[in-house]
Simulated assay, not measured.
Amino acid sequence: MLADLGWWNNPTPQNPSGHLDQVLAVLERYGWCQSLDTSPTGRMCIRGAQNLLERTGHVTPDARDRATAHMQTVLTRAGVDMPFWAWNDLPGQEFSHVKDLLTRAATHARTIGD
C-alpha cells in the first residue's frame, strides 16, 4: 500500500511535521472518510492514517502524540474545543477542511522546530 507512495520497506520514522505531511499524502492517495478509522474500501480518517503510519514504522508514538498536539493547537486557535477525531466526523465536514488542518498543523510544527 505505502509502496504506491514510494515509501518502501525499512521506513524512517518522521518528526511531527513530516508525519502530518505523510498523513495528508495517505488521505490524498487512498481517500478520506468519516466515522471509521478505515472504511471497507480503504479510505481513512485522520486517525486511521496515523494508525497506518505508526503500524508501519513511519512515525514513533511520541512523534505522533506531538503531531496530534499540533493539530489540537490549530483547532483551538480556530475556536474548536473538541478532539481532532471528533472534528473530523462532524456533519458537513469536508476534505478541504481536513487538508487545511493538516497543512496548518505541519506549518506550526515546523515553526517551532518540530
Rank of each mutant, 00 (worst) to 15 (best):
residue 1 M to E: 13
residue 2 L to E: 08
residue 2 L to C: 04
residue 2 L to R: 12
residue 3 A to K: 13
residue 9 N to I: 05
residue 9 N to D: 15
residue 11 P to E: 09
residue 11 P to I: 07
residue 12 T to M: 09
residue 12 T to W: 00
residue 13 P to G: 07
residue 14 Q to V: 04
residue 14 Q to I: 01
residue 15 N to P: 02
residue 16 P to Q: 05
residue 17 S to P: 01
residue 18 G to A: 09
residue 20 L to P: 00
residue 20 L to N: 04
residue 23 V to G: 05
residue 24 L to D: 11
residue 24 L to V: 00
residue 25 A to H: 13
residue 25 A to Y: 10
residue 28 E to P: 01
residue 28 E to H: 08
residue 28 E to M: 05
residue 29 R to H: 15
residue 29 R to T: 04
residue 29 R to Y: 10
residue 31 G to D: 05
residue 32 W to H: 10
residue 32 W to K: 10
residue 34 Q to S: 04
residue 35 S to H: 15
residue 36 L to T: 04
residue 38 T to A: 15
residue 38 T to H: 10
residue 38 T to R: 15
residue 38 T to F: 12
residue 39 S to R: 08
residue 39 S to V: 03
residue 39 S to A: 15
residue 40 P to E: 10
residue 40 P to V: 11
residue 42 G to D: 10
residue 43 R to G: 06
residue 44 M to H: 14
residue 44 M to L: 13
residue 46 I to V: 14
residue 47 R to A: 13
residue 48 G to D: 14
residue 49 A to N: 03
residue 49 A to L: 07
residue 52 L to R: 13
residue 52 L to H: 09
residue 53 L to Y: 09
residue 54 E to Q: 14
residue 55 R to Y: 08
residue 55 R to P: 00
residue 55 R to W: 09
residue 57 G to W: 03
residue 57 G to N: 07
residue 58 H to M: 07
residue 62 D to Q: 13
residue 62 D to F: 11
residue 63 A to G: 00
residue 64 R to D: 06
residue 64 R to A: 12
residue 64 R to T: 04
residue 65 D to R: 10
residue 65 D to T: 11
residue 66 R to S: 11
residue 67 A to L: 02
residue 67 A to G: 15
residue 68 T to D: 07
residue 68 T to R: 11
residue 69 A to F: 02
residue 70 H to N: 03
residue 70 H to P: 00
residue 71 M to P: 00
residue 72 Q to M: 11
residue 74 V to G: 04
residue 75 L to M: 09
residue 75 L to K: 01
residue 75 L to V: 06
residue 76 T to F: 07
residue 76 T to S: 12
residue 77 R to Y: 02
residue 78 A to V: 00
residue 78 A to N: 09
residue 78 A to D: 13
residue 78 A to Q: 08
residue 81 D to L: 02
residue 82 M to V: 12
residue 86 A to R: 10
residue 87 W to V: 10
residue 89 D to P: 13
residue 89 D to L: 05
residue 90 L to S: 10
residue 91 P to L: 03
residue 91 P to Y: 08
residue 93 Q to C: 03
residue 93 Q to N: 13
residue 94 E to C: 06
residue 94 E to V: 11
residue 94 E to K: 12
residue 96 S to W: 05
residue 97 H to V: 03
residue 97 H to M: 12
residue 99 K to V: 01
residue 99 K to G: 01
residue 101 L to M: 05
residue 101 L to K: 01
residue 102 L to S: 08
residue 102 L to A: 09
residue 103 T to A: 05
residue 103 T to G: 02
residue 106 A to C: 07
residue 106 A to N: 10
residue 108 H to N: 10
residue 109 A to S: 14
residue 110 R to F: 00
residue 111 T to L: 08
residue 111 T to R: 15
residue 112 I to D: 15
residue 112 I to Q: 15
residue 113 G to M: 04
residue 114 D to I: 00
residue 114 D to L: 08
